[in-house]
């Protein structure tokens, strides 16, 4: 059982991580770098007018940050590669541990069930916390980090519990408990600043948020399918 959990989680995490890193490189990094142009003051957009702040440079004033050299970008993208794989192996371990728990109470997890787990994971990790703390383009000022992390963790954990209870609880009371768990963090509310102080154009931030959700959705669907596939493969090879 131990080997089945850890090997299927590892393979599922690697498959989902591969898709995730390709999506991050192709869809997200260019927007992150563009956002940093505004974060560092190389560009500004006040009044809907794009200003590229070369004038400061010409006047001999120190610019905030130089554009990154290609080798810096290479190491940055390589680090992202490892971070994505580690992240998805982490999520896969938790999801497959959930499969094992479900199996202990007599619920067999087929690939189609695992797909639903992936979608539920996306909802619990992205949709529900995102109500209070939406994805942020780098350079977007926000409330105290530790408070946000605490709220994010609480919301994600409550949402996971809620979906599990609603899907596998056998009495109507579990649906009610699940709804309460889903709503509670939002009644308390996420930590927020008093106003908005983002320096990037709103259209750039909007594009970023939309892509972040799309990328996360695809990542989690792949994670669910892959975890279900390797989990069931483990069951077959064990039986053989």
């Amino acid at each position: 059982m131990t080997a089945r959990i850890f090997t299927s989680a590892l393979f599922a995490g690697l498959v989902a991580g591969l898709i995730a890193v390709l999506l991050q490189w192709s869809l997200m990094e260019n927007l992150i770098l563009e956002g940093e142009e505004y974060e560092t003051g190389n560009k500004s957009h006040f009044g809907g007018v794009l200003v590229i702040n070369d004038a400061l440079e010409a006047a001999g004033e120190p610019t905030a940050v130089e554009a990154e050299e290609p080798e810096d970008l290479f190491s940055r993208f390589s680090l992202a590669f490892f971070a994505v794989f580690v992240t998805f192996v982490g999520w896969a371990l938790m999801m497959v541990a959930g499969f094992a728990m479900a199996e202990r109470v007599g619920q067999r997890i087929r690939v189609k069930d695992a797909l639903l787990w992936g979608i539920a994971g996306f909802a619990a990790i992205h949709i529900m916390p995102g109500i209070g703390l939406p994805p942020e383009l780098p350079g977007t000022p926000a409330a105290d980090l530790e408070e946000r992390q605490l709220w994010w963790l609480t919301t994600a954990l409550f949402s996971i519990l809620a979906f599990a209870l609603m899907a596998y609880g056998r009495k109507p009371i579990y649906i009610i408990i699940g709804i309460a768990l889903l709503i509670a963090p939002h009644i308390i509310g996420a930590p927020h600043m008093d106003g908005y102080a983002g320096v990037a154009p709103p259209d750039l931030a909007g594009e970023y948020v939309a892509r972040s959700y799309a990328v996360a959705f695809i990542d989690w669907v792949v994670l669910g399918l892959a975890a279900g596939y390797f989990w069931n493969r483990g069951a077959v090879s064990k039986a053989a």
Binding site: M28, L79, P129, E136, P138, D219
Partner: peptide, 16 residues
Amino acid sequence: HDSAHDTRHTLAFPCH
């Protein structure tokens, strides 16, 4: 933080 920065932003973990 620095190694995982872009990934944290892409996957909407609270960052900065």
